[in-house]
């Protein structure tokens, strides 16, 4: 199975805002499962969803999502 090359700080930002996954899902208008899969790196979100998550936290998308340099993308 291919490793997800996108790491994120959703859990950190949720803790800072004291939000549950469900509360974040509500703000982004997706299901809790979707937030869970993104947060646990089981699913790479689209740019649109990444932007919506960043906007919900009032942060920049690159503050929340970073490329994991440890995972080769075959380049």
């Amino acid at each position: 199975m291919t490793e997800n090359p996108l790491k994120n700080k959703i859990k950190v930002y949720r803790a800072m805002n004291d939000w549950t996954q469900e509360e974040l899902a509500q703000r982004v208008n997706v299901t809790r499962k979707t937030i869970n899969t993104v947060e646990n790196r089981k699913f790479v979100p689209s740019a649109y969803l990444a932007l919506k998550i960043a906007r919900a936290f009032g942060a920049l998308v690159e503050d929340i999502f970073q490329i994991d340099e440890g995972i080769s993308d075959g380049e």
């Binding site: 208008n29 997706v30 299901t31 979707t34 699913f43």
Partner: peptide, 14 residues
């Protein structure tokens, strides 16, 4: 439309 967007999100489509 709100339910449609939330429940047929990109994870579901994928």
């Amino acid at each position: 439309p709100r339910l449609e967007a939330a429940l047929h999100n990109e994870l579901v489509k994928s």
